[in-house]
Amino acid sequence: MNLTIDHILAGISAGGQYALIAIGYTMVYGILRLINFAHGDVFMASGLIIVYLTTAMPLQYAIPVVIIATVFIGFLIERAAYKPLRSAPRMSVMISAIGVSYLIQNLALYITGGLPQTYPAIPWISDSVELFGAVTKRVTVVTPVLTLVLVVALVVLIRYTKIGMAMRAVSKDFETSQLMGIKINKVISTTFIIGSFLAAIGSLLYFSSYQSVTPTSGAMPGLKAFVAAVFGGIGSIPGAVVGAFVIGICENIIKSSTEFSIFSDAFTFALLIIVLCVRPTGIFGEKTTDKV
């Protein structure tokens, strides 16, 4: 064990990135009761798009374009793969999500030819900085700050705007809110748009610190983010963020040991199983926090 400040910093940074993905899971689950298995792949796709965009245009244009593209992908997946199954059993929708995930991964494999793509260095956030005696990229510092800002903005949006109120209503009771005149499809689309937007930001930060994108590089962060969402109490945004930071930090501490580093992924799932057995509603139980 050579636990240093490096690992803690990397853990906080990873936690922030997982948090941004986890929010997408938790919001979709809150409304549709669906584990959106394709969310991790949307995150990966966002990373790939920017690799190809930067060959065609300067970075300051590429970043907004990639965010819009990711949001569009998220929106499209919901419309094409989940909306037709709205009245189907939940298992069918989950299978559809797995199918979409499979499709995106194969599409990415086809486009990249299976080669890992080098992520472009984003000037300011890829610079090295020194912090508590450890040299790290600026992205490590930027991630938690940006995550917290976005989460606060999201919570404000959910609590004080009309669409936020609609989201809360839909997550409480799907049918009744429909009877009350809430346009369900609009609310669901908005949820997917917000989730994909945050996944795009998360992907910018995540791949800036890992530097290469492969077709399967979205699957594991995706599953971990989902575990984070369950850990924090699925449906609860603050819960997802706390869960993501716990997982990010623990995982990097495990990675610091050479003997057990292979268990860094397995740890996440062990944590999930313990949480599900001991406290299935997560650390922030459903009723105490606002659920979206």
Binding site: I35, M94, D265, A266, F269, I273
Partner: peptide
């Protein structure tokens, strides 16, 4: 779905 994700987790472990 919790069963799905937990069994998936065990496979990964």
């Amino acid at each position: 779905d919790y069963l799905a994700i937990a069994s998936l987790g065990f496979a990964e472990i």
